[in-house]
Amino acid sequence: MNTANNTGGLRPIRRLLWATVAGTALAFGAAALWRAFTPSDLPAPRVTGEAAIVNSYSLTDHAGRSVTPDSYDGQWQLVFFGFTFCPNICPTTLAYIASVMDILGPEADQVAPIFVTVDPARDTVDVMAEYVAAFHPRLIGLTGTEAQAAEATANFRVWYERSEGADAPDGYLMAHSGYIYLMRPDGGFDTVYREGDQPPEALADEILMRIERDERS
């Protein structure tokens, strides 16, 4: 019953996301992102099925290994974009993902929690290693070059901006969309969640239900 409520509650979010996808892709995808990060280096975003969100990236994990979504093939993936200079939303969301992992118990083995930085210049491999370890032993931190991070955010339709400010840490603050993406074991996009929309127990239930449904089929 929880599940039905949650799914119903998510429908407007999903609808909102699709609207966001269109708006973001047009307004910012075209202008800000592509202009800021050498467009020639970026592949055109591919669209699979009806989802405009594509699980595609080439990044470096916090252990220094080159990874792509194939590296997590066979696992459900919880993907969140943020940055380590973010003192409020990012640690709150990562702690939330960590408690979802704990609640999942043994089933957590089937889930890869992934934190992708939108600030790769400051979030180096070493920084990511120290940062993710503080939240959960299973949390994976991904970084890369500016172009690689831009490609990942473009594929996930993650919008972020950099605002310059003399009083900001190292001169800039960042704003970003706060979705947690759930990707299926085959790498396809499943749905999005937001921290604060449901307690970690409810999200763990949602994921468990999907794992069970997937195993039955």
Binding site: L16, I89, A175, G178
Partner: peptide, 16 residues
């Protein structure tokens, strides 16, 4: 002192 505003597109922005 930071307010944090999340707009309709779920973009979180800190407001000084």
């Amino acid at each position: 002192i930071h307010a944090s505003e999340t707009d309709a597109d779920s973009v979180a922005r800190m407001i000084h």
